[in-house]
């Protein structure tokens, strides 16, 4: 990696008098002298740019290109064949596809809303002054966020199990349920159940960011409002929400990107089922690629995901108005 920071050929070293004199043979010294050249700022950026171009930018364009090709990795011998928009038209003609689109919206908006709301409530509670045990609670509340999705999935599969699930047991003992339920096998409860698991993992992210955002609001604003006799709700609406908006927007965008892109929980918990009840676009793309190796069709699904994300981000940024000030 380090070599990337160096000019690959002797041409660029002509701009470096010290090197031309051949004074330094030690590579560290040489690097040190290189850092005095006027290209240093760019040289520092070079390795990261190379990596990003190779691993992200190029693959994205390649992926878009693939979506116009017929290409199956299992039949790679047939090579690629340009089919234009055929992959897309086939998708649009498929009724399942529209069910999956609908599921994706339920998953993404259900997830983002529930996690944002719960995260905000918890962040406001943590933000009370003199809350005893606050620092410890903050760390503990953050824990689910660093648990691997696979482990989180299996934990909840056990908790919600139809025979051995402790949640069933508690609900029955409390009299809320009369008998155990198969949460993930029932089309009516499968999506809410997966959303609950994601709420467990995703809420701490909102709590963390919103709490930090609340902490950065100057105390004087509230004091001034109190002098003017503002009620708690008025303070919340006139100070907290506007001051928090940039954080909210950033957090929601990041979480939506995460929700659109990761099929992890579905892979572990339901595999899209029962029927198509929890099938989302990311899982669909992944299955076409991983199980059928039909990379052309999978790429087309991914491009649709990218387009949805781009439209969402643009609209959201526009309507939230955060870009106006900055």
């Amino acid at each position: 990696m380090l070599q990337n920071a160096l000019p690959p050929d002797s041409q660029s070293s002509q701009t470096l008098p010290a090197v031309r004199k051949g004074r330094s043979l030690n590579p560290l010294t040489w690097l040190g002298e290189l850092s005095e050249s006027r290209y240093w700022a760019y040289l520092l950026l070079l390795p990261s740019l190379l990596l990003v171009v190779a691993v992200i930018v190029y693959p994205v364009f390649y992926g878009v290109y693939l979506s116009f090709q017929q290409f199956n990795l299992l039949r790679a011998g047939l090579g690629m064949k340009f089919v234009g928009l055929q992959q897309y038209t086939e998708l649009f003609a498929d009724d399942d596809f529209w069910v999956i689109i609908k599921n994706t919206f339920v998953w993404v908006f259900g997830g983002a809303f529930s996690q944002f709301f719960l995260g905000l409530v918890v962040a406001l509670a943590l933000n009370r002054k003199n809350l005893k045990g606050g620092p410890l609670a903050r760390v503990l509340l953050l824990l689910p966020w660093v648990i691997p999705s696979v482990v989180a999935g299996h934990m909840w599969a056990l908790l919600l199990d139809s025979r051995l699930g402790v949640i069933n047991d508690i609900l029955v003992k409390l009299g809320i349920l009369t008998s155990y339920r198969a949460w993930f096998a029932d089309p009516a409860t499968a999506m809410p159940a997966v959303l609950l698991v994601d709420m467990w993992r995703g809420t701490p992210f909102f709590t963390l960011l919103l709490y930090a955002g609340l902490q950065s609001i100057p105390e004087e604003l509230y004091e001034a409002a109190e002098v003017d006799g503002a009620s708690g709700w008025a303070k919340f609406r006139a100070i907290t929400i506007p001051m928090l908006t940039p954080v909210i927007v950033a957090a929601v965008i990041l979480r939506v990107i995460g929700l659109v892109n990761s099929p992890d929980l579905m892979i572990v918990l339901t595999n899209g089922g029962p029927g198509l009840a929890t099938f989302t676009l990311s899982l669909y793309a992944f299955q076409i690629a991983y199980e059928n190796f039909n990379f052309g069709a999978a790429a087309a699904v991914s491009v649709i995901m990218l387009l949805i994300l781009m439209v969402f981000t643009t609209l959201y940024l526009k309507f939230s108005g955060v870009t106006k000030n900055t």
């Binding site: 992926g63 892109n261 990311s282 793309a285």
Partner: peptide, 8 residues
């Protein structure tokens, strides 16, 4: 999207 980059 990660899946888009995954294939290339």
């Amino acid at each position: 999207p990660a899946v888009l980059m995954l294939l290339p």
